[in-house]
Simulated assay, not measured.
Amino acid sequence: MKRLLAASLFAVLSQAAIAQGNALIESESWNELRFDFVGDTTLHDGAALFTVETPYRAHDAATVPIVISQSADATPIHGALVIIDENPAPLAADLTFSEAMWPLDFELRVRVNQYSNIRVIAETDDGLFMNGGYVKASGGCSAPASRDPEVALASMGQMRLRSFDDTPRMSGQRREAQVMIRHPNYSGLQRDQITQLFVSAHFINLIEVFQGDEILFTLEGGISVSENPVFRFGYRDNGAPTIRIRARDTEGNIFEQVLAKDDGA
């Protein structure tokens, strides 16, 4: 009987450890960074407001998925900072969201340079709320690009939209979409595989996504956003037939494309 109880207790504790395996952990780096991002502002526990899904052990440190989700009745999130404590440039993304994005269901992919907390600080009318997870990954910021530089630069700025709802489109309908932008997003920490010289930093630092003329979300980013940025998100359809994507990189290049919402459904 005692052995059975011990086994049951071990199973319960093991499940709890797995469930909490990538909760945020204490971080000396965050203690040093905190004031730069939020000053003395109180950070509330965001667990009841939104979830942050991250892998505990990343399959690819150069493309780590982060999913920020809310329930239908959650307090709206106007904006969010995505911070990777141990990255050379901790601020991965500064996001703003329109009402059409509420409740939030948003995924992006980032680079993680070493084992680190990934934290999301959400801005609401009730203050700032923080949630996140601890991710085991390393080398993401210096990982070689997946494509030959000439090929990557030749396709730079190409965009694609995928819709995941094939029902007839109508205003007010909740829809889900994914946008992809071709760009090497060089971090400045990668080496040319032939010359072994560092490749100069060259990355997208601003992305704006609209439906028709209405903004859906903006992202101001740095070197921590993955190569060929991909964003998957839910939104409320305003009846416009198109999604417009506008991006700017650190070389001053502007990329813009208008894509039909029903393409790729």
Rank of each mutant, 00 (worst) to 15 (best):
H202P: 01
A177Q: 05
M101G: 07
G133N: 11
F106S: 12
P90Y: 03
D213G: 02
E227G: 08
L219Y: 05
Q257D: 06
V135H: 04
T96H: 13
A143I: 00
I66V: 15
N131D: 04
A137E: 06
N185L: 05
V225K: 10
R34A: 14
N31C: 04
N185K: 00
F35I: 10
G132R: 04
L5N: 06
T96G: 13
L189M: 12
I245F: 02
R244S: 15
K2S: 02
F233G: 08
T250K: 09
C141M: 10
G133H: 03
S200Y: 10
I118G: 00
V151H: 12
E99P: 08
E32F: 10
S27R: 01
W102Q: 15
V82Q: 06
T41N: 12
E99D: 14
S226W: 02
L206R: 09
Q20H: 15
W30I: 05
A100N: 08
R191G: 01
G46Y: 01
K261E: 04
A89D: 06
T167V: 03
L259S: 06
Y56H: 13
S138E: 08
A265S: 07
M1K: 01
E256A: 15
S163R: 05
F255E: 01
I194R: 13
V112F: 00
T250I: 11
R248S: 09
L108F: 05
L161T: 07
Q15M: 10
G264H: 04
N113E: 12
F231S: 14
G79Y: 05
A19Y: 12
S14N: 11
A92W: 01
N228I: 09
L81S: 07
A61T: 04
F198I: 15
Q190M: 11
K2I: 05
Q178P: 10
V110M: 04
S226F: 00
F233C: 07
Y235R: 08
S171H: 04
G127F: 01
Q257S: 12
Q257T: 09
S69V: 06
N31S: 11
A16N: 04
S69D: 06
I66H: 09
D126K: 15
V110A: 06
G188S: 05
T75W: 00
Q196T: 12
I83H: 04
D165W: 02
I66E: 02
G212S: 12
N131W: 00
A61K: 02
A92V: 04
P65W: 00
E251N: 15
A48Q: 14
L33N: 03
A80G: 08
S8M: 11
F97H: 05
F50H: 13
P55L: 00
T124S: 08
E220W: 07
R57V: 15
P149L: 01
V151R: 15
A154H: 07
G46E: 05
F10M: 04
S163G: 15
L216H: 07
Q190W: 00
A72Y: 03
A247D: 02
G239V: 05
V52L: 00
L104R: 09
A80R: 07
E220P: 03
S146C: 00
S138Y: 06
A137I: 04
N31E: 12
D73E: 13
G79F: 05
G157P: 10
M159C: 10
R248K: 14
G46S: 08
S226N: 14
F210M: 12
R34S: 14
W102Y: 09
H202R: 09
I68M: 11
T54F: 01
A16C: 06
K136R: 02
S27Q: 02
G46N: 08
R232A: 12
Y115F: 11
